[in-house]
Design a binder for these strands. Structure first.
Ligand SMILES: [Mn+2]
Ligand SMILES: [Mn+2]
Ligand SMILES: [Zn+2]
Ligand SMILES: [Zn+2]
Lengths: 129, 129
DNA sequence: AATTTATTGCAACTTTGTCGCATTAACAAA
DNA sequence: TTTGTTAATGCGACAAAGTTGCAATAAATT
């Protein structure tokens, strides 16, 4: 793990995650910071922060890459959050980590190295409309 | 569900799925048929066949869309195969449906409408090398 | 065979993401 | 504080996956 410099752009991105506890998509972040940093900078910082274990990523139902605060910080202490499911609301798009473990189906013939579980539905806010 | 015409291209694509019992990615299919049909035709036929329930799709670890024979045909009779997991071999890329049901974690605050579970690892062929 | 319209080819376009390279700015050492 | 090192950034060009409008074509029906 190489040195990581806490640049203005890194601070800005980390701040975006600190405010909300939800996941943020690359597209949303690129748009949010389009006046403050270059698109490739956003992608590169996200990648770097994931390498450091500060963020983790997954693919949403839209095929986009989503990021959220990761193992080292917010979720530390809780069990086995390396592989946790994610929930995405099809109405408002809100996407979040689910703080629970995933039960892996038995596939004896294969070696399973990673699991990704995505639940899509309606969040509580959108359900109560 | 509109009328579906069994064109040469539709037959060719269905044939590709009939031969093998694995899932096929859009990219692989576009390449396989690049001399016989246009790229947009491939995408449009796949979409149409999925609407008809003949194929179903999911997103691979590569972010690509993968298709496999669906509910109405091959897998009919088996339990609840509407939501089944998929396995993708990180070595050879072979990707397949897992004929088992997915246990959905309890997210009482949300309404879950669909589940996608992807296992990534090493298939039996690649493990025995 | 004629008619209807679903399907296709084509080309242009969009979106997401990557890459090389010159410039800039963290950060540590002096 | 100044200087030196090099990680990080901006920029523009590029790539890959997928979409779209429209004219031409070919299934299916009569
Ligand atoms: Mn997460
Ligand atoms: Mn499947
Ligand atoms: Zn919602
Ligand atoms: Zn394999």
């Amino acid at each position: 793990m190489g040195v990581i410099r806490i640049t203005k752009s890194v601070k800005a991105l980390l701040n975006a995650f600190a405010e909300q506890e939800v996941a943020l998509s690359t597209v949303a972040l690129v748009e949010q910071f389009q006046d403050h940093m270059n698109r490739s900078t956003v992608y590169r910082i996200l990648e770097r922060l994931e390498d450091e274990g500060i963020l983790h990523s997954f693919t949403g139902s839209d095929g986009l890459t989503w990021y959220a605060l990761g193992n080292k910080n917010l979720l530390s202490g809780k069990a086995n959050l390396d592989t946790h499911p994610h929930f995405q609301c099809k109405d408002c798009g809100k996407t979040e980590c689910l703080p629970m473990s995933v039960s892996i189906p038995d596939v004896s013939k294969h070696t399973v190295e990673s699991v990704s579980l995505l639940l899509v539905g309606q969040c509580s806010d959108c359900a109560s409309v």
